[in-house]
Design a binder for these strands. Sequence first.
DNA 1: CTGTTAGCGCCTTCAG
DNA 2: CTGAAGGCGCTAACAG
Lengths: 342, 342
Amino acid sequence: MPTMIDVAKRAGVAISTVSYAINGTRPISEETRQRVFAAMEDLGYKPNVFARGLAGKRSRIIALHFPIPERGVGLTEIEFIASAANTARENGYEMVLWTFEMHDLDELRQLTQQGLVDGVVAMEVYEHDQRIAIWRDAGLPFSLIGLTANTDGLRFVEADFEQAAQDTVHYLAQLGHTHIGFLNQSRAVYDAGYGPGVRTQRGYEKGVQTAGLPSTIQYCQATVSAGFETLDSLLAQDPDLTALITINDRAVPGVMQAAAERGWRIPDDFSLVVIGSSASIAELMTPPVTTVEPPNAAMGRLGVELLIQQIEDQEQKNVQIMLPCTLVIRGSSGPCRRDFGK
Amino acid sequence: MPTMIDVAKRAGVAISTVSYAINGTRPISEETRQRVFAAMEDLGYKPNVFARGLAGKRSRIIALHFPIPERGVGLTEIEFIASAANTARENGYEMVLWTFEMHDLDELRQLTQQGLVDGVVAMEVYEHDQRIAIWRDAGLPFSLIGLTANTDGLRFVEADFEQAAQDTVHYLAQLGHTHIGFLNQSRAVYDAGYGPGVRTQRGYEKGVQTAGLPSTIQYCQATVSAGFETLDSLLAQDPDLTALITINDRAVPGVMQAAAERGWRIPDDFSLVVIGSSASIAELMTPPVTTVEPPNAAMGRLGVELLIQQIEDQEQKNVQIMLPCTLVIRGSSGPCRRDFGK
DNA sequence: CTGTTAGCGCCTTCAG
DNA sequence: CTGAAGGCGCTAACAG
């Protein structure tokens, strides 16, 4: 493995010149720059990560903190991770994956101070996220996938679940539904301030309010059986419910079963829209479920780019990015057809 | 950030003693060892990754190469990745995620030679896997999740799909099925030598042969619509088919639809077992699908452990590990009840 | 069993 | 614009 010294010799320059040529830290005459790069090419030179990390400030390694959520992991997350990893690589960064728990603040602090990474992208952001203080104190650049209650000075990218929920209410109302319910994640997740849960619900509430419709909300564990049971609770609140919006895709088959047991057919008697899920999940269900899909790949990319720009001190224009979700109509939503009491 | 020098001073020993105490490279008296560790604790000392990597041979960073497969990603993979990441961490290693393509051999070679990682765990192993030669040539330790045609001298852990398939044939035969089909991934994936595809099919063939049953095999893209169409092809081959084994979970809803259109009910008229999928997918379908589930978390853990043992030159007893899959009976499989032509 | 010391490869002042 | 030299924190000889 050739070193900088070899490159310097071959190019007939000083070793520091090579360094500057590589990092662009200082102007170099075009001619010598060429020579240096040619030498690097010839020798197949690759800067040594460790030496660089030791001597300089930068490691060119970033972390993706993905505390595996209790609600389980969806394909959404994989798309996201893959896109983040690719983006890092394209920018010449390595990406390490941290999966330890959210509450493991000590672990996080340690890793943060270790200096291994130049920055971190945080997934699974909560309204009051403890990680932020740690990174701020340590002066470590970070970007968020999701947003907190107070977003001052933060850099984030997030799917606009609030808007998505409002749009979904609107979509269902247009189909003639006047009693639209909302099925959230579990109460515990909501109370902990899980962003998508909080904001989707807020959007739903705004949506039904604007449309002058009643609001019916239930929380539910991310399991089929919980979904099965929760339809009863929803109908106890509003017996005339003909449509349901949810961000809890795991519970959906249960809801469908429960609907089937009442003799309802989907979508003729009951419509269902899942926010935040993706095609590969939606198409497994019968009928395939109408979804509002977040732009996962774009989010992964932007999250990493936001971080790298920050690390490299580049100008940042849009540091708070909300991306729209896409409504994909499949077989679980349609016009309101149910007859009441006739 | 305290350094080794600080620790040495505080413990009243030489700096090298600290180093040896940490790495266990050399015997240290219990007493001084205690002192050193106490000092480390007090100061909150953490070894600097870069210095370590520069000076020694080890970086304590490993890579997980996960070339995102064309067939899409399942939850299986996430479980796996999470478990690998955790195991690495528990052993004091960082894990970087490489997601670039299988065919991108240049990229792989570069990263390999860069010396960033002490070793790599390879996912998505094919029968004739090109990566092996690269790592062997570079003298880089690696372990495989999956196996190749020739496993001499390799360290791997894999789910025993061949056995699983045989067992599944047996299970269905016991239920009274005498015409059991097999639905593989796409022909392209099979021809490329994708391990699970090849071995599951082999197991299926052995199974039906042993039981004296006819063999019916089709290849199929990993999409719902492909699944829908392929049931026809299967029935064209064997009109008496009453059960189907598959490793193509994405296609299953299509198969179910096609069965429904024939007026068949599952499992009364047609049984379906998915090998290699996991609960969270199976339960989304209607009815929930009987699966044969690989021990993902265990595989992730073992894959990393195998690698680390190798890196650290520890004794290795079981370096070729086949783990059994678990049959989880859900609603898609049952006794053969269909009447033929009556 | 412990201490001393020369690098590992690169970045970054400094002086030219 | 270029060159020389110190040091980042640690490992691994080499001495004792």
